[in-house]
C-alpha cells in the first residue's frame, strides 16, 4: 500500500454505529481507500445490503443504492446493465448473500455479470441479534443454536465461495480476513484486484472476507480476531479459490 495513513476521502466524516472492534469498520475504510486510489469516487456505485451494514450509504461518500435483503446482486445487475461505465459493487453479509439471497447470488454469478462483490462472512446474523447464519461453524453457539450448531439438524457451514468458483461466469474468487494487519493489507489488495477486474471488463469477482462480530461471538475484539485466525480459517481456508 502507499504510505498514506490518513482518512480516505470516500469515507464520510461521521462516527459509525458499529460495535467496538467490528470488522465492518475496517472493511469500510479499505473500500474507501481503494475508491480514492482508483479515482472512481465519481463513478462507483455501491449496493448496500440489509444487515449491520444497512446504512453503508451514510459512510461512503459515493452513490449508493439500498437493496431489499438478499437482492443486492439483482439491483447491481440492473444498475450495471443500464450504466456499464459505472463501477458497481455489492457489499453483503453472509445472511444476505448466502441465505435469503442465494438465488440472486448464484444467478448473477452464473450470468457472469461484470460486478464486484464484497462478501462479509461473520458467521452470524449480526443485525437481528446473532442468530445462526449459513456460515456459522459447527459447535458455534448462536441465539438460535444455544447448544452449538449441529450438522445433523442444521447442516454444515456453507462454502458458497467454493460453489461459485465452479461457475463459468465467475472470473475470480478469493477468501481473505481482517484479523491482523497482514490479513487486512491482503484483503485490501484482493478487493482492489476485484475492482480492477470490473474496470478491465473481465466479469464477476467476489472477495469473501472473514470478519469479526465481537458482540455476537461473545468475545473481546482481540479474541474475536484470534478466533478467526485460529478457528474460522480451518473450515474457511484463506487464499485464491479461482
Amino acid at each position: 500500500m502507499g504510505k498514506n495513513y490518513s482518512r480516505p476521502q470516500a469515507l464520510t466524516d461521521v462516527v459509525t454505529h458499529y460495535c467496538p472492534g467490528c470488522g465492518h469498520g475496517i472493511l469500510h475504510r479499505l473500500v474507501a481507500e481503494i475508491i480514492d486510489e482508483l479515482g472512481i469516487r465519481g463513478s462507483a456505485i455501491a449496493v448496500a445490503p440489509v444487515g449491520c451494514a444497512v446504512v453503508a450509504y451514510d459512510y461512503w461518500d459515493i452513490d449508493c443504492a439500498e437493496a431489499a435483503h438478499g437482492r443486492a446482486l439483482a439491483v447491481a445487475t440492473g444498475l450495471k446493465r443500464v450504466q456499464p461505465d459505472k463501477i458497481v459493487f455489492t457489499y453483503q453479509g453472509d445472511g444476505d448473500l448466502a441465505a435469503i439471497g442465494t438465488a440472486e447470488t448464484i444467478h448473477a454469478a452464473n450470468r457472469g455479470e461484470n460486478l464486484t462483490v464484497i462478501f462479509v462472512n461473520n458467521a452470524v446474523y449480526g443485525m437481528t441479534g446473532g442468530q445462526m447464519a449459513p456460515t456459522t461453524l459447527l459447535s458455534q453457539k448462536t441465539a438460535t443454536t444455544p447448544r452449538g450448531r449441529q450438522a445433523a439438524t442444521e447442516g454444515y457451514p456453507l462454502k458458497i465461495s467454493e460453489m461459485l468458483a465452479l461457475l463459468n461466469g465467475v472470473v475470480s474468487v478469493e477468501r481473505t480476513a481482517v484479523s491482523s494487519p497482514k490479513e487486512v493489507l491482503n484483503t485490501r489488495r484482493a478487493i482492489k484486484d476485484a475492482f480492477m477486474n470490473q474496470m478491465e471488463r473481465k466479469g464477476f469477482s467476489i472477495v469473501e472476507v472473514l470478519s469479526m462480530c465481537p458482540t455476537y461471538w461473545d468475545k473481546s475484539p482481540v479474541d474475536a480476531a484470534r478466533w478467526i485466525s485460529e478457528e474460522m480459517v480451518k473450515y474457511f481456508p484463506l487464499g485464491k479459490i479461482k
Binding site: 504510505k3 495513513y5 490518513s6 482518512r7 480516505p8 469515507l11 462516527v15 459509525t16 458499529y18 467496538p20 472492534g21 467490528c22 470488522g23 465492518h24 469498520g25 475496517i26 469500510h28 475504510r29 491482523s180 494487519p181 487486512v184 493489507l185 475484539p221
Partner: peptide
C-alpha cells in the same frame, strides 16, 4: 516508527500518521 499497523487495524478510522 510510523509503521502504520495501528492505522491498518482501526475499525473506526480514528488514527492518522
Amino acid at each position: 516508527t510510523g509503521c502504520g499497523m495501528c492505522f491498518v487495524m482501526c475499525p473506526d478510522a480514528c488514527i492518522e500518521i
